[in-house]
């Protein structure tokens, strides 16, 4: 996976967030404050602008730049959390021009660690971690089993989507939905839903490579 692969991922993620903007906002209206889709869409638009203004030369630089733009433009909790995820991933990739599947797994593990350290959420708290963590685990296992990259990312995407759906019966323990207590049960977490979209975008980027 080279720089153009990671640029393709960002482009796919931006397109998916834009297409699902209203859906994400509706999920957020139920248990949050009705802005998740609008905020992420604005953030990814800023990411694409930043990447167009100063084209990065390595995969790591793509992700660090993307993360910084998210932190600068999104606000709320999702800006720092997704921003940190992309930045940690980019840092883990260093300045290597070509990334192996194992390298991608390591970087995603670093991203997950960064998100959990910043937000303090564990699996089961009804946050984006509930989609992120199973996706990273599934990818790690598939890569270790020697699966083709596309297949491994398909598995990871499925795990993220299942993880997002599995937030429906959970009671939120972090973020704005936690104020609702038991009334947060019965709704999908918007952050977990957007994480699933971003993994699906990674899968599509692999299909284009």
């Amino acid at each position: 996976m080279d720089t153009s692969f990671f640029l393709a991922w960002i482009k796919e993620a931006a397109t998916a967030v834009q297409a699902e903007r209203d859906h994400l906002t509706q999920l957020d209206a139920a248990i949050g404050d009705a802005d998740h889709g609008a905020n992420l869409d604005r953030g990814f638009a800023a990411v694409r602008q930043a990447l167009a203004d100063t084209p990065p030369e390595t995969p790591g630089a793509v992700l660090v730049q993307a993360g910084s733009a998210l932190i600068r433009k999104v606000g709320g909790a999702s800006g720092p959390l997704y921003g940190t995820a992309f930045r940690q991933m980019g840092r883990a990739l260093g300045d290597a021009p070509e990334i192996t599947p194992a390298g991608l797994v390591t970087a995603l593990e670093a991203a997950q660690e960064g998100v959990q350290k910043l937000g303090g959420a564990a699996e089961g708290d009804k946050t984006l971690v509930d989609a992120f963590a199973p996706a990273v685990r599934a990818l790690a296992q598939a890569v270790q089993d020697g699966a083709k990259l596309e297949d491994a990312l398909e598995t990871a995407t499925t795990a993220a989507e299942e993880g997002a759906r599995a937030t429906v019966p959970l009671q939120a323990r972090k973020g704005r939905a936690s104020y609702l207590g038991p009334r947060s049960v019965g709704h999908e977490d918007p952050g977990a839903a957007s994480t699933a979209l971003i993994f699906a975008a990674l899968r599509r980027a692999a299909g284009q490579a």
């Binding site: 209206a29 609008a38 704005r176 009334r183």
Partner: peptide
């Protein structure tokens, strides 16, 4: 009503109130 959403963040009928609300339009307790 958040302008970007265009409709009220939650629906309350004429006989209902929401107790323990925050200031971000999130529903209450």
């Amino acid at each position: 009503t958040v302008p970007a959403a265009g409709k009220p963040t939650f629906d309350l009928s004429d006989t209902e109130i929401e107790l323990g609300i925050g200031i971000h339009g999130e529903p209450g307790r």
